[in-house]
């Protein structure tokens, strides 16, 4: 725990018209770890996540990424700094092919380009890398399929391929296993483990069981506040966590 944290928050608070969704959260994400943020329904996980990714503005507190204060940054700015998020509802570009989905992320390397006079063929040089990324998530046979036609689990895989195409230092995954069958959960868990090599992952999950052997560190949120933090053994033994999770732990 001597290493510099990649992402750190101080007194992070979000109020919605008097209702405090997230209260005074201090989070510390160590580099090259898988960190899970879990909690029962309404614990403020998603709010917290949206604060970290700048989709919401905090009412108070500070967010520091790689030693830089990003509290006032815009969502597209932090993406360019190397902090890339996924979405709870699988976020793919439905009427583009799987290959094009990944390529959209890869062509970001060209910067903000407004070259409407240039041919699409300019992008062909990214096809090789895009196919590699699709292969990495087991989608090589679906390169030319429209994303909207892929089954749910494969959409999630495509989303992860698109995210790692940006080669982010920190990936934030919003309930990557939500709404999935058992075999898909195992596959996505494997996938997360694979892509986490050499980078940091912060994921929000509903179920403690799902993140048990995936995460290095688990932070439990309840009613907007940090309830417990540590590895699975420590967190699952915590009586406060057990009571917060009564009936939902499986």
């Amino acid at each position: 725990m001597t290493a510099e944290a990649i992402l750190e928050t101080e007194g992070l608070t979000k109020e919605f018209r008097g209702f405090v969704a997230v209260r005074n959260v201090a989070l510390r994400v160590e580099p090259n770890t898988i960190h899970a943020l879990i909690g029962p329904n309404g614990a403020g996980k998603t709010t917290c996540f949206n604060l970290l990714t700048k989709f919401l503005t905090p009412s108070a507190g500070r967010i520091v990424f790689k030693g830089r204060d990003i509290t006032a940054a815009r969502p597209s700015d932090i993406a360019r700094m190397g902090l890339v998020r996924s979405f709870q509802i699988s976020a793919v570009f439905g009427h583009l092919t799987a290959l094009e989905n990944v390529r959209i992320a890869l062509q970001r390397q060209r910067g903000q380009s407004f070259d409407f006079w240039r041919s699409e063929r300019t992008l062909d040089r990214y096809n090789g890398r895009a196919r590699e990324l699709l292969e990495a998530v087991g989608l090589e046979d679906y390169a030319d399929a429209q994303a909207v036609e892929l089954p749910y689990g494969r959409k999630r895989a495509l989303e992860i391929a698109t995210t790692i195409a940006l080669d982010p230092e920190l990936m934030l995954l919003d309930e990557p296993m939500a709404g999935m069958g058992h075999e898909d959960v195992a596959r996505i868990a494997d996938l997360i483990r694979t892509v986490a090599k050499g980078r940091t992952v912060l994921m929000v999950e509903h179920n403690l069981g799902v993140v048990a052997d995936l995460s290095d560190t688990i932070t439990v949120l309840a009613r907007g506040e940090v309830l417990a933090e540590g590895d699975y053994a420590r967190v699952s033994a915590d009586p406060a966590v057990r009571s917060a999770y009564m009936g939902t732990e499986d």
């Binding site: 993406a79 890339v84 998020r85 976020a91 793919v92 570009f93 959209i104 970001r108 407004f114 698109t162």
Partner: peptide, 21 residues
């Protein structure tokens, strides 16, 4: 064009396009 590809991505899923930078 490459620009048109980004436009289509915005049409399909704007928050995702933002999150890609």
């Amino acid at each position: 064009s490459p620009f048109g590809q980004v436009l289509k991505a915005i049409r399909e899923n704007e928050p995702r396009a933002v999150s890609l930078g």
